[in-house]
Design a protein around this nucleic acid. Sequence first.
DNA 1: TTGAAAGCGCTAACAC
DNA 2: GTGTTAGCGCTTTCAA
Lengths: 332, 332
Amino acid sequence: MSGARVKKAPTIVEIAHELGVSPSTVSRAFTAPRLLKPETVERIRAAAAERGYVPNVHARALSTGVPRTIGLIVPDIANPFFPPMIRAAQRTAEETGHTVLIADTDGDVEREKRTIERLTAQSESLIIASSRLPSAQLCELTARRRVLFINRDEPETARILVSSRDALGQCMARLLELGHERFVYVGGPEGSWSDGERRGIVEESLAGSGATLESMRIPSGTYADTMAAADQILAGSPTAVVAFDDVIAHAVIDLLHDRGVSVPGAVSVVGCDDTVALTTQPPLTSIALKVADAARLAVRTVVEGQVSEMLTPQRIALQGELVERATVAAVG
Amino acid sequence: MSGARVKKAPTIVEIAHELGVSPSTVSRAFTAPRLLKPETVERIRAAAAERGYVPNVHARALSTGVPRTIGLIVPDIANPFFPPMIRAAQRTAEETGHTVLIADTDGDVEREKRTIERLTAQSESLIIASSRLPSAQLCELTARRRVLFINRDEPETARILVSSRDALGQCMARLLELGHERFVYVGGPEGSWSDGERRGIVEESLAGSGATLESMRIPSGTYADTMAAADQILAGSPTAVVAFDDVIAHAVIDLLHDRGVSVPGAVSVVGCDDTVALTTQPPLTSIALKVADAARLAVRTVVEGQVSEMLTPQRIALQGELVERATVAAVG
DNA sequence: TTGAAAGCGCTAACAC
DNA sequence: GTGTTAGCGCTTTCAA
């Protein structure tokens, strides 16, 4: 079996020859069937299917000048926040015959820049999620490229924000209603747009309520580092802990449990992203984000319109939904 | 800003004109610099860098006949087992200037077939992880393609197995040593190679030991379904539970806890994959698999050698390592 | 050491 | 409705 030859893919010309038609006719059978006699289309498609013909994307891209490829750049594919986004993007792209190229930057700015360069050359547009680039670089790099951002709120760009504003606001109101007076916000990575938004909402919601707020941050956002910050989190004897995301919330529940503090009996905990919410004990109250919707919308946006034109700057915020489970209760 | 034009990428011809050299010279500056006067190479590279020239992958692929693209097909990108594999594959592919196209099949056979067809056309080789295709179809589909499998042990193909054999065997021996006599194996998806391997090792290890084994399965492999199967899992009052993966192990720990059964005091639990091991209470004893190594090896294997030739059939098993944490103890 | 020219597989005017 | 032709950007003989 070793040494066997890989079968060369059949080309349009070969199919054309066999059928006694011209190459362009075969091409049209796939790209503009309505220009052909239905019968011809049938005949060609049948023959093509039989020989296992699949159009060569490179030839097509070269000929049309538009690579039907969309680059999707994420900081970390292993972060459970992104796979659903990637999935939705791919499924949506499929509908229009596009391919999504995934790239992972490790949250590293240099790598992000290089990735943008590289993908620019082979994609008709770029979708960049949670970009870490400083504004200046970002403007420069994207000045003459078709780029759409997800979760980066840079003015004058096309961007989609997966927002927790409404849901988190509602959640905070509920917590206040339940009599909570000492809050802790356990934030995530510095410079994350989501973290900024959430921190802001928590502050706004509490302003003038008489409740106290302790605001802190777990830069790595990991379970282990959150556990390690237990003392700091519990320093002010909070009655409610709002976590940047579900991973942190999960750790908070566990550290509370370690100290014999009942959740939600003594302390209420809320997470965000709804990624692990069903695997905590008790099940975590969290905010389900419109990640898949954002990806779908992103792909549809970049796919429509002339690829030779920049995207129209606009800001779209998709509001998530509060999912009430079992980690929130009245104080006391 | 809307309506602004996307900058057209500079081509080899433009650079050649500006420098007063021929297009082939510019091409050679990138593909065969040793054929050129070092000084010329320098001049060309500088000019190219300045204009932001990046070779057009499509043109290159068309011209050389080899698309420097590797297709990587996984059942579910959201399964925490795969992102580290994807990451490692991409980083390795980068080294040789290759691009990895990720596709997700949803564990669906039809979709897997379509994906293989589609990727074949634009990749020089395919890496397929945890393929669900029946053997016959798999042989047919792969008969004349450059394909390498990960975690699918089909004879006469090139395959890499991320094995837990040694580590799990060692773990079982340890459990026996500690006096365990009633075991449950809580398996995963039907047809998974990993599940078959693990189930087999558990059976072999216990054969002739006098210990009893209850073997079951959570087809979906989810936390929720595992919780729901609590009665079945605990029916035989096991002293040790071996789980197909960490997600199931996590659920087992939680359901044991719900019933007031101490881990590892009364029951020992071991997981596999080492994906969530650090976020359980107590920390889960698990098996760290060589997933990233497998991906690296897979990419290196498909990248080397003539792309016109099939891969040499071979079977490589990469052994994982037992990571002892806190969910295993002596019986009693 | 460099240039000229052909051609990869496909699409898109433009003919017929 | 279908065929002819030119060309997308690049690599690669073959000549010089």
